[in-house]
Lab assay of single mutants.
Amino acid sequence: SAVVMEEGSPGEVPVLVEPPGLEDVEAALGMDRRTDAYSRSSSVSSQEEKSLHAEELVGRGIPIERVVSSEGGRPSVDLSFQPSQPLSKSSSSPELQTLQDILGDPGDKADVGRLSPEVKARSQSGTLDGESAAWSASGEDSRGQPEGPLPSSSPRSPSGLRPRGYTISDSAPSRRGKRVERDALKSRATASNAEKVPGINPSFVFLQLYHSPFFGDESNKPILLPNESQSFERSVQLLDQIPSYDTHKIAVLYVGEGQSNSELAILSNEHGSYRYTEFLTGLGRLIELKDCQPDKVYLGGLDVCGEDGQFTYCWHDDIMQAVFHIATLMPTKDVDKHRCDKKRHLGNDFVSIVYNDSGEDFKLGTIKGQFNFVHVIVTPLDYECNLVSLQCRKDMEGLVDTSVAKIVSDRNLPFVARQMALHANMASQVHHSRSNPTDIYPSKWIARLRHIKRLRQRICEEAAYSNPSLPLVHPPSHSKAPAQTPAEPTPGYEVGQRKRLISSVEDFTEFV
């Protein structure tokens, strides 16, 4: 048969007729292969192709491409040299491709048809291009793949890379869960390890502090508590009631339409708007009261037996805890006409967050109470924005700035309102402590230090009264110190430094 060459192609190359033996071998191979691939376009007849790359030819070592076609129900084999250009295909004639002069020997084609199974398996396991790669995943090629499931790999992101949580363990979102698992493993320790309690022994800490320079003076030496005195035992138990972190309780009120001037209507609300609910979820963490331990979680007086509701929101960081007394989460009882059960919590909070959804101005004093010092007013606006402002009593104007209003988005509203309420509550605590000038409020841990110092002074006084020969370590507060001759004046800087060093040991009130 003659071949018409394309323009620009090399000279004529004689194409030899395939021997009958080659056709029989390739026909047997075509019957084993699956003929249901995917359909081509209507211009080209339905056909199945599979590209198999052999590394070497037997005796020649030339890479070839073998295409199996099922045109007219008769499979045909096409061998081509890759750099050459194939002729145009037609549905009426068999596929013809040019070969190099080196394939002119018909014996070479017979060798190609009689490829060993080793070469076929190696060509099938190679990388296939384009559409033949999808075909190689079918059941027909499963014989050339190794048996057994593939090893499982770690989760992959859409980009093909490992997620960040699997790369950096410290930033993994499941870090707290692993800590819980470690605690569970520790709890399952053997009885021999049960006595080993991690941490620092208080006796060891005391020993280090006792021999430090801070205890060089007799006034700073630790003293032993009497065991037989019940009054001192009660004082030590009272110390446990003062937490070592700051605590805040903040009221949250929802004002519906037409309720801006009605205290009873505001306290009777059992739910609010959708934006109000989203605002609550951002204030803190939802907790169930019956599962809380009052000595570990500050509840601000809420009952854990269901008297004040089942849930509330709280927030904490390293040095403070805040609980929100939310009116809509507290039960509304029919027998309580004046809502006294709610007001006994909300009316005693220094700061209230008022979500004013009424469309009218909310005035300070609508919720009557002796300790309502500051109101954080949240007014929802259009386009997911809110107006946040402050209202306070006249005696609080020096501590709280009420002249600045803020426009905040719904997303950042819980954070801004919480921070403003916490700052206002700190100012309210300082303002409330002014009624007792001898006990200015600095912080909870300073209050613990003052309680310890008062307890020490009482013990020293009782020891001096029981044994008059012992001198008083600290003179009583009601006694007057003996007159001392004025010492020589020293520079102001040295006096300030000495006073600062003494105050650092005794108390921190002056620095606050």
Results as ranks from 00 to 15, higher is better:
217 D>Q: 11
218 E>F: 14
219 S>N: 14
222 P>K: 09
225 L>V: 14
228 E>L: 07
229 S>Q: 09
230 Q>R: 11
232 F>G: 06
233 E>K: 14
233 E>G: 07
234 R>C: 09
234 R>G: 11
235 S>K: 07
236 V>M: 14
237 Q>H: 10
239 L>S: 08
241 Q>I: 05
243 P>W: 05
244 S>H: 11
244 S>R: 10
247 T>D: 04
247 T>A: 04
248 H>I: 15
249 K>V: 08
250 I>G: 01
250 I>Q: 01
250 I>F: 05
256 G>V: 00
256 G>C: 02
256 G>S: 04
257 E>L: 09
258 G>C: 04
259 Q>T: 02
260 S>T: 12
261 N>Y: 04
261 N>L: 05
261 N>I: 03
261 N>Q: 10
262 S>W: 03
262 S>T: 04
263 E>R: 01
266 I>E: 03
271 H>N: 08
273 S>E: 01
273 S>H: 02
274 Y>P: 10
274 Y>N: 06
275 R>Y: 00
275 R>D: 00
275 R>P: 00
277 T>I: 05
281 T>L: 07
281 T>N: 15
282 G>K: 04
284 G>Q: 06
284 G>A: 05
285 R>M: 14
285 R>C: 14
285 R>W: 06
286 L>D: 11
286 L>Y: 05
287 I>D: 12
288 E>N: 10
291 D>K: 15
292 C>F: 11
292 C>Q: 11
295 D>N: 07
296 K>N: 09
301 G>P: 14
301 G>N: 13
302 L>T: 15
302 L>H: 14
304 V>Y: 06
304 V>H: 07
305 C>K: 11
306 G>L: 06
306 G>E: 13
306 G>F: 07
306 G>S: 10
308 D>K: 12
312 T>R: 07
314 C>Y: 15
315 W>P: 04
316 H>D: 15
316 H>N: 15
320 M>P: 03
323 V>A: 07
324 F>C: 02
327 A>Q: 04
330 M>N: 07
332 T>E: 07
333 K>I: 10
333 K>A: 13
334 D>K: 15
340 C>G: 14
340 C>F: 15
341 D>G: 15
342 K>A: 07
343 K>R: 15
344 R>W: 09
345 H>Y: 14
345 H>G: 05
345 H>T: 13
349 D>A: 12
349 D>P: 10
350 F>L: 05
350 F>W: 07
351 V>Q: 00
352 S>F: 07
354 V>T: 04
357 D>R: 00
359 G>S: 05
360 E>F: 04
360 E>R: 06
361 D>K: 06
363 K>H: 12
365 G>Y: 04
366 T>M: 05
367 I>G: 04
368 K>W: 10
370 Q>L: 14
374 V>W: 02
374 V>S: 03
377 I>K: 02
378 V>Q: 01
379 T>Y: 04
379 T>R: 05
380 P>Q: 00
381 L>A: 02
382 D>N: 04
384 E>G: 10
385 C>I: 06
388 V>W: 01
390 L>V: 15
391 Q>N: 06
394 K>C: 13
394 K>G: 10
394 K>L: 08
395 D>Q: 14
396 M>S: 02
396 M>A: 05
397 E>L: 13
398 G>P: 14
401 D>M: 04
403 S>D: 09
404 V>C: 13
405 A>Q: 12
406 K>D: 03
406 K>Y: 06
408 V>P: 00
410 D>G: 01
412 N>A: 08
413 L>V: 13
414 P>A: 13
417 A>C: 09
417 A>V: 11
420 M>V: 05
421 A>S: 05
428 S>P: 01
428 S>K: 01
428 S>I: 09
433 S>Y: 12
434 R>C: 11
436 N>M: 07
436 N>R: 07
436 N>D: 09
438 T>G: 07
440 I>G: 06
441 Y>P: 11
443 S>R: 09
446 I>A: 14
451 H>N: 13
463 A>H: 14
464 A>W: 09
464 A>S: 09
465 Y>A: 14
467 N>Y: 14
467 N>A: 13
468 P>N: 11
471 P>F: 07
472 L>G: 15
473 V>E: 15
474 H>W: 07
475 P>M: 14
477 S>W: 09
477 S>D: 15
477 S>L: 09
478 H>V: 15
478 H>L: 10
479 S>Q: 11
480 K>V: 13
480 K>A: 15
481 A>Q: 13
485 T>A: 10
485 T>M: 11
485 T>P: 14
487 A>D: 12
487 A>P: 11
488 E>N: 10
491 P>C: 11
491 P>I: 09
492 G>V: 08
494 E>T: 08
494 E>Q: 12
496 G>C: 14
497 Q>G: 14
497 Q>S: 11
498 R>I: 09
501 L>K: 06
502 I>N: 15
504 S>L: 10
505 V>E: 14
508 F>R: 15
508 F>L: 14
509 T>S: 14
